[in-house]
């Protein structure tokens, strides 16, 4: 996958993820409607710009809608005094700023570094999340995941909360999550292993969305997978 193809694909997927998130802000508060309608409009321009053939990019809209989205992201950060939805919004911001920088930098090397940083961060997002768990005895013996189900704010229903009474299953699930996360960098060894790793990651995010309502992670993380696929091809 070329840098240009990977960048454009990430732009389109991220813009679609932002449109989904933004739509959720349109139902109640006027100030949020103004901000997120503007974000949806800029996302449409990003998609149109990314889908313009390379030969026509001299008059295409890119990268100005991305610059607009990056500036608007600062206004939204101030509006909520931080991310609205924690980690998923932070990944969205990281991807947006890396893409904007990549599009604006004048040299191919600079573009590669900005986009490669995004790919590396996605790999780190899994590895570090696994590392902080494996060094914690409560994660290794299943207690931490039981606590997530027992009293954290995340389980979407009392039925899901009831999983806290299944310590053997949660112990196994803890190790499955730890091994997947900490082993993710190994999937970079080849294209087929990476495809398998990303498929498992997709299932992981789907489970988190169903059990804990984390639907934004399900769209935001896969949106930046082209950055890993490009990085793997560039490095190996």
């Amino acid at each position: 996958m070329t840098l240009d193809t990977a960048t454009r694909l990430t732009e389109v997927l991220l813009a679609l993820a932002f449109i989904q998130q933004s739509a959720e802000h349109l139902r109640r508060f006027r100030d949020e409607q103004v901000l997120f309608l503007a974000r949806m409009a800029l996302c449409v321009l990003v998609i149109l710009g990314a889908m313009t053939p390379q030969s026509l990019t001299s008059w295409s809209l890119a990268p100005w809608p991305l610059v607009g989205l990056a500036l608007l992201s600062l206004v939204i950060l101030h509006r909520f005094q931080g991310p609205f939805n924690g980690g998923s919004d932070r990944m969205g911001l990281l991807a947006l700023w890396c893409l904007t920088l990549s599009e604006c930098l004048p040299t191919e090397k600079g573009r590669e570094i900005a986009f490669g940083y995004l790919g590396a961060q996605v790999v780190l997002s899994y590895f570090i999340a696994g590392w902080v768990k494996i060094v914690n005895p409560d994660w290794r013996n299943g207690r931490a995941l039981r606590q997530v189900f027992a009293f954290s704010a995340y389980p979407v229903s009392e039925g899901v909360r009831g999983w806290a009474t299944q310590p053997a299953i949660l112990h196994a699930m803890s190790w499955a999550v730890i091994l997947f996360e900490i082993g993710f960098p190994l999937t970079l060894a080849s294209r087929p292993t990476l495809v398998v790793g990303l498929a498992v990651a997709g299932v992981f995010h789907l489970a988190n969305a169903c059990l804990f309502g984390l639907n934004r992670f399900f769209w935001t993380w896969p949106a930046v997978y082209p950055a890993i696929i490009w990085l793997q091809g560039r490095l190996f």
Binding site: D89, M91, N136, V148
Partner: peptide
Amino acid sequence: LLLPALVPSWNFFN
């Protein structure tokens, strides 16, 4: 506000 997103910690549920 912005730096934690650009230099993330990724320590989910540590």
